[in-house]
């Protein structure tokens, strides 16, 4: 496994979401890569994410072809826009289906799935 994938999953295993940051572009990067996709420089830094974001859009999955999700339906699959400006796919949990909406403020939390710690999101306390 390349170093960047290793670092990403190792940080998650300790309950932290870290993002890559390009010091030359001053931009955050998601998903992890071996170089900055904007300037192609290979030297990237790692920094902890603020954990704040909002729902850019979402889909409620009623029918899933994935065996481990069949018992989970309906569930919320979402694009989260992090405060750092990057977007990532995730799930919205602890949120009733009639409460979810575009631009809903959310905060980072973690779940265990398939032996992995995954970053997911829940509605912000103040929301």
């Amino acid at each position: 496994m390349p170093d960047y994938k290793d670092i990403y999953w190792q940080k998650l295993a300790t309950g932290k979401l870290w993002l890559q940051f390009c010091p030359s572009c001053q931009k955050f990067i998601f998903y992890p890569r071996g170089l900055c996709p904007y300037c192609l420089e290979p030297e990237l830094e790692w920094t902890p994410a603020s954990g704040q974001g909002k729902v850019h859009s979402y889909a409620i999955v009623n029918v899933s072809a994935l065996p481990e999700f069949k018992e989970e339906t309906p569930y919320i699959y979402a694009v989260i826009e992090l405060a750092e400006g990057v977007k990532m796919p995730s799930n919205l949990i602890d949120c009733s289906l009639d409460k979810v909406h575009v631009d809903l403020p959310v905060e980072l939390t973690f779940i265990e799935r398939d032996g992995k710690t995954l970053p997911v999101f829940k509605p912000s306390e103040e929301a």
Partner: peptide, 28 residues
């Protein structure tokens, strides 16, 4: 990249992708 960082969240292939677009269009 989708297998590594997207699949763990249960996307439903093209269905969920286009659903994200439709939802945002409806909302906006």
């Amino acid at each position: 990249a989708e297998i590594d960082y997207d699949l763990p969240y249960g996307p439903m292939g093209f269905n969920s992708g286009y659903a994200l677009i439709a939802r945002r269009h409806i909302s906006q």
